[in-house]
Nucleic acid binder design. Structure first.
Lengths: 127, 127
DNA sequence: CGGTATCCTCAAAGATACTG
DNA sequence: CAGTATCTTTGAGGATACCG
């Protein structure tokens, strides 16, 4: 029984291999600011200042850095309007929207299990 | 119409607030090694050396550090058998298993969208 | 308003060597 | 085998100030 490798194997991206590009994607998705910024954009387009206000604690530098990385990866679009004062709107691309369910589930997990993890930590630290 | 806040509000963990503990959970889940190590343990219990072999590129130090953090958070159990040579088996707890679908979806996303992201990058870098 | 530019710190992470 | 100990580096990330 000969298997059609070309069909069943695909290019075979494997994040468990250190040199695979998909490893970088795990890193990007895993980035704390990526998760939070993309989470905000999941609710619809938003301006720079709105994102900054929504994601508490992020510095201008990290926000712009995160946004730029997301834009480079084709996950977010940036539209600047030549007005005074300037207005810049960020929005998820179709590709970026495929990330929504993933990131939202990370967020939901964090919310739901914070109590359990926190008490596990106390127990661990006590011993 | 008076709302029962105690019922509908829950403790209200919000990762978007910088001081909320759930922010740390987003960070932990987002950690590259956490994703990969937990991914391995999703297939069942595994020994230290097995995990090391599966997760390409991880150093002994980071593996033990990651494992310890997961144990502290109540996501993984560690069982050491007093044998020669020593055998130590790590396993996901029930709480840790709630993380499986989340992490697996991150991994799946990375695999599936690596080509699209990679070509977006090339396009971006070209301009 | 929407960013850059700059400086600075600290800790995450790699490499290596060694031990219970 | 399963780690720990130690040393070192580098760059992520915060704070601040300023520019188009």
């Amino acid at each position: 029984m000969i298997r059609e490798d070309a069909v069943s194997e695909e290019p075979d991206f494997d994040p468990y291999h250190p040199d695979c590009p998909s490893r970088q994607l795990v890193d990007r998705v895993g980035d704390r600011w990526t998760i939070l910024v993309t989470g905000v954009l999941s609710d619809g387009p938003a301006r720079y200042g709105e994102i900054a206000a929504s994601v508490g604690g992020i510095s201008p530098k990290m926000l712009s850095h995160t946004l730029k990385a997301l834009e480079r990866d084709g996950l977010v679009t940036r539209k600047a309007y030549a007005e005074v004062p300037p207005r810049v709107v960020y929005e998820l691309t179709d590709l970026g929207r495929t990330l929504r369910p993933v990131l939202l589930s990370v967020e939901a997990w964090a919310r739901e299990n914070a109590p359990a993890v926190l008490s596990a930590r106390e127990r661990y630290d006590a011993s």
